[in-house]
Design a protein around this nucleic acid. Structure first.
Lengths: 337, 337
DNA sequence: CTGAAAGCGCTAACAC
DNA sequence: GTGTTAGCGCTTTCAG
């Protein structure tokens, strides 16, 4: 147990009081230059490191921010964390990570467990109904929501513009000459999935008035996408393009069509959403909507950090994704508009 | 600022002393049943949540473990964290995550910053020379190393058996009938890369005695793999198989060969290491060595947690990876041995 | 500029 | 069983 060296030891060695040590170490101005040097030397010699719990108990600051996520699976969260970590480091903040493992009912526990450990938190709750969140966030906790649908609680929110992204994709497909565009939806209780579906419907009405929406169920994973692909193959009047609510499902479709001997995009076009790394490597490469997830995370933290000084922006800020046109939707016709 | 409710408020409402509140809330036995109920009710009514910093200052426990990583990029770290998080939750531990962004010199800072914040830490330092680590870990800090080469400091280590994995791959290639097996190495200062190279050399001597090692430089990324692929294409006496030290480089090779019109595996076989998700989706699907990263992380945490009670195992425990044979190394001949 | 001292909110002896 | 009290290691008035 070598970690017994406290501020007192430093004070003794430097022949000053603990108060002076504290001031010197925290870079305050009212310390005589010579004394400061003595303190710093003593601290270095003893390898003194301030004890965090003590410091945060008395200063009421933790210099750490909490990150409450639904899960830790996959590339989305790793990218999100990376973006957050970059900004955290910039502001010398630590990151306390917690996942509630897809169980919304554990979200409250996770949030409460952060009391006294963090100065603020970033919370993500991708469920359509996040109202339970409001209670656990009720008190003066600083928080910013990520991709979470919860308004009227005075919290800032950063989210991906799913509606706009889906709209851009439908527009692209229409421009490429596709006329019967099917949509493979995501989980019903997922807010992102819901917005993408709405974007599809709205854009269809806008760019292909008269075209009927063709919506298939899906669950954001490859196998449900594959199933949707087979369902499409079995349709009497087959669509000429499929837009899946995320890339994994689009890949599932792609494989279903491959197996059936269809050529993509000649026989049928396929598009996804997210731009996962795989998207550019499959054959044909997948047209999709790219989201800068790291930016989403970084911006969320910046919002949180800024909110502690000024008033927190209470609005929903949307991150605009962009279309990445690849081979899987290369158009039959070339009507430019 | 609703978080002003302290243990005192609960004590007052429940008409007991703070000590009793503490005991009741911490589930100690010496509390009268009726009193316990009163305390619990009061706590619930006031929405009391213990203040972490205060608790850990006085109890000298933080119930959190630190995770110090070289980076947060990509699937390896996300899987590692997922495995760790699973075990952490099991033991009701929080996770403080910190990355030193590939700068070994910042590792010490990261480690020191954890003082008083964690009960122990999981540290990963993939550099061949991790000796600087020893100093910053010198005191009685509980720690377990992950994929880190540092012996003699009395710390447990969990690592992937890179040597064994590379050996298994060479054996597989030899069994498939390949005779001139080239190796695309990883960064020189990376410990995993170094061990994989050794495994290749040793296995070559073992399974194909007389065959000369053919080693190309690489940097663990796709472009260096691609460059190595082109270098191989330019060789007078071309190898019939390429084993890259990781999957991304193997993919780079694959694309180089595709571009050159070579057929894999008929003209040349390609193999990687890691089994990233992409590996099964490329064409031809990539033979590789699969590592259960989540298990690596989970086991590391278990080791850390166990070490606090019993004596920490000071040895290096190796996680055995396994061969995943796919299309990219389908053999020309069928000599079984 | 510096020191003494009062807490921060909680746990853990130690009494009763 | 329960209350009193002394810290945990640090920051922060408040004097000087």
């Amino acid at each position: 147990m070598g970690d017994v060296v406290t501020i007192r030891d430093v004070a003794r060695l430097a022949q000053v009081s603990v108060a002076t040590v504290s001031r010197a170490l925290n870079g305050q101005q009212n310390v005589a230059p010579g004394v400061r040097v003595r303190v710093l030397d003593a601290a270095r010699e003893l390898k003194y490191v301030p004890h965090h719990a003590a410091r945060s108990l008395s200063s009421r600051k933790t210099r750490t921010i909490g990150l409450v996520l639904p899960d830790l699976h996959g590339e989305f969260f790793s990218e999100l964390m990376r973006g957050i970590d970059l900004v955290a480091r910039e502001h010398d903040q630590h990151l306390l990570v917690s996942s509630y493992h897809g169980h919304p009912e554990e979200l409250g526990v996770a949030l409460r467990a952060m009391r006294g450990r963090v100065d603020g938190m970033l919370v993500m709750s991708p469920f359509v109904d996040s109202s339970a969140l409001a209670q656990d966030l009720g008190d003066g906790q600083h928080a910013v929501l990520i991709n979470t649908h919860l308004t009227g609680v005075g919290l800032g929110t950063l989210a991906i513009d799913n509606h706009g992204g889906a709209r851009a994709m439908v527009q692209h497909l229409a421009k490429q000459g596709f006329r019967r565009i099917a949509f493979v939806a995501g989980p019903q209780d997922n807010f992102d999935a819901d917005q993408r579906l709405r974007g599809y419907r709205d854009a269809l009405a806008e760019f292909l008035p008269g075209a009927e929406p063709i919506v298939l169920e899906g669950a954001f994973d490859e196998s449900s996408g594959n199933a949707a692909g087979h369902a499409i193959l079995a349709m009497a009047e087959r669509p000429d393009a499929v837009f899946a609510a995320n890339d994994m499902m689009a890949l599932g479709c792609l494989f279903a069509f491959h197996q059936a001997g269809l050529r993509v995009p000649d026989d049928i076009a396929v598009a996804g959403f997210d731009d996962i790394p795989l998207a550019r490597y499959v054959h044909p490469s997948l047209t999709t909507i790219a989201v800068d997830i790291a930016e989403l995370g970084g911006l969320a933290l910046r919002t949180l950090l800024a909110g502690r000084e000024a008033d927190m922006p209470r609005d929903v800020r949307l991150i605009a994704p962009h279309l990445v046109a690849r081979a899987s939707t290369r158009g039959a016709r070339r009507d430019s508009s």
